[in-house]
Design a binder for these strands. Structure first.
Lengths: 115, 115
DNA sequence: TGCGCATATAAGTATATGCCTATATACTAA
DNA sequence: TTAGTATATAGGCATATACTTATATGCGCA
């Protein structure tokens, strides 16, 4: 069994800085259970689409999340290949499940499911 | 066995924001192994004393670290009673040990040990 | 008391962050 | 091609952050 490489302070602090924003942390907690697209986050956070897009971009830029286009939508998910993925998971598992946001979305008929 | 209370998003993001700074994260990683005083951090980070003092204050203000006066010095340590203590520990354990900073300090004869 | 060391606070400044509106790009479907 | 929807980018603005220097406070000891 190979010893686990420690995460550098630089990389960890960059990841933690992004996690240190309430909006992004909530997004990440949601993504821990379900993939989401930008327009769902816009509904959930009641925030402008460009704001959401910028939060998402920052997380994508450091490899924390990844995107996959599905037709018109781009679905975002946690990137299991992210170097800080284990740390991220450990943090997210200490946080309350955020399913109520998705349930609201479903009630409003706004949940995207591109099958 | 009582189920562990989840940490609120608000409290977690406040803690993560503080951890998201390279200087503070390194301080915390050091404190995971050894108590330190402000003047030691000043040596280690080669930064002005007020800067260090302000970093320390932010972490103290949210209860992440605690202080104990020992004569002339104030020793800082991780606060085991901090609500996010477990999360903090999990993050810190993913980071490389920072003992080299203390070893440099000892070589320079600047390590404080108030016995 | 008064000096020296450790730490804290105040005030100023440059940069970073997070939001907005306006606009551009990408895809779908008529 | 054109309209409609989803997302990204650009630019601007207000606030937050991280540093600095100057000064105040707290403690130990002669």
């Amino acid at each position: 069994m190979v010893a686990k490489e420690a995460l550098s302070i630089d990389k960890a602090s960059a990841a933690l800085k992004l996690m240190g924003d309430k909006t992004r942390l909530t997004m990440l907690r949601i993504l821990a259970d379900h993939d989401c697209c930008v327009c769902e986050f816009v509904e959930i956070f009641n925030m402008s689409q460009p704001s959401i897009s910028q939060h998402v971009r920052k997380m994508k830029d450091i490899g924390m999340i990844k995107e996959q286009r599905r037709g018109q939508w781009i679905m975002y998910s946690l990137n299991q290949g992210f170097e800080g993925y284990e740390m991220l998971q450990q943090v997210l598992h200490q946080l309350p499940v955020q399913d109520h946001h998705l349930e609201e979305l479903i009630q409003k008929g706004k949940r995207i499911s591109c099958e």
